[in-house]
Computed example of a mutant assay.
Amino acid sequence: MSDMKDAFAHVGGVLATGLAEVTGDPAALDSRGWWAVVVTYEGEVTCARFTEVRRAPHPTGRWSGAAGWSSSLNEAGYVAGVRRIRAEIADGVVYQANLCRVLSAPLPREHDIAGLGARLAVGNPAPYAMTLRLPGLGVASASPELYLSRAGEVVESRPIKGTGRTAADLLPKDHAENVMIVDLVRNDLGRVAVPGSVEVPALCALEEHPGLVHLVSTVRARLAPGAGWPELLAVTFPPGSVTGAPKSSALALLEELEPVPRGPYCGAVGWVDADSGRGALAVGIRTFWTADGLVRFGTGAGVTWGSDPHGEWRETELKAARLLAVAGEGGNGEGLDQR
């Protein structure tokens, strides 16, 4: 892994270098300077302040391709989990839950995270893509989903629920699921917003991304006086689109069903410019991370009463396929062990 002088972040066409400090305190995001941010699904915060920030192309690096992927849940285990969630829905415990699995593979022989990020930028461009190299941690994200953006007192979230190869693949359950999560996000933001300021400018809008389509909604609010990034994270994290509703019940159920931590997957990745009061954190989906000699990648699907268990497994495969191909040996993504 890199040392301090090799650290960088690339996001939104901006390259940040000159790592000055790393902290786990989100209050730093309301202080000064430009920060790269990673928050794991389990709530571990990494804020890295960089001193040199400029428009620049994505850095290059060597990535020889990952192979030999294994999954934290095989198809039988995942299908059983979906059936358990449907049973909990029938009992009124949850209305929806997002069941995930984490894929892992040995780091390839040449494994500069800049190289993987550059591959993603070409093979799977995404509106909230980010590559980050810190001592002990590498992240390469092709996230299409905005968790939280902030421009002064205005905050916005754009939850995704509903995925298919084409618009014709989207089902009534996808629309219902999206509306459920929009209600959850509205309620979360309402806890730190000026009363009456929460609005939904777009509901279930269709967005096209490489290889698939999504239903995306927009929730907007004005922050109450005295509220900042720590307060925002406290009431909205983990993102509702990757947990479920009600969130507290879904979190407890998913902790039972998922055998390994999600890490940065389903957490938050992005940037904050404390000097200008602006920032954008994406939901950590379509995201690779490297640590402890492994590269990991997560995939999941939202489960409702209308879910078909094997259909949800296939959705996790659809979401993963293109990204694993980009990261794979020769760019072909071979070697996923799903037994």
Score class of each variant (00 low, 15 high):
8 F>W: 08
115 G>E: 04
281 L>Y: 00
210 P>E: 07
282 A>E: 01
160 I>A: 03
249 S>W: 02
53 V>N: 07
203 L>V: 13
320 A>T: 05
187 N>E: 13
187 N>D: 14
94 V>G: 06
157 S>L: 05
189 L>A: 03
110 E>W: 04
159 P>N: 08
142 A>Q: 01
230 P>L: 06
305 W>A: 15
325 A>Y: 03
6 D>N: 10
54 R>Q: 14
30 D>L: 02
170 L>S: 13
200 V>C: 14
233 L>H: 00
242 V>P: 06
100 C>T: 12
54 R>N: 08
209 H>T: 09
57 P>T: 10
197 S>V: 06
198 V>I: 05
303 V>N: 09
245 A>G: 11
97 A>K: 01
116 L>M: 08
218 T>Y: 03
93 V>C: 10
296 R>N: 03
248 S>N: 07
306 G>N: 06
93 V>Q: 13
279 G>I: 02
257 L>P: 12
210 P>I: 09
310 H>R: 15
67 A>W: 03
232 L>R: 00
275 D>M: 08
294 L>H: 15
144 P>A: 04
36 A>L: 11
165 R>D: 05
223 L>H: 00
116 L>I: 09
252 A>N: 11
114 A>R: 09
2 S>A: 13
72 S>D: 07
79 V>K: 05
4 M>Q: 12
128 Y>K: 06
3 D>E: 12
305 W>E: 15
11 V>K: 09
11 V>H: 14
173 K>A: 07
267 G>S: 08
29 L>G: 02
95 Y>K: 05
255 E>V: 10
160 I>K: 01
152 G>I: 04
174 D>Y: 05
259 P>M: 11
274 A>P: 10
147 Y>N: 02
200 V>L: 11
182 V>I: 12
98 N>H: 05
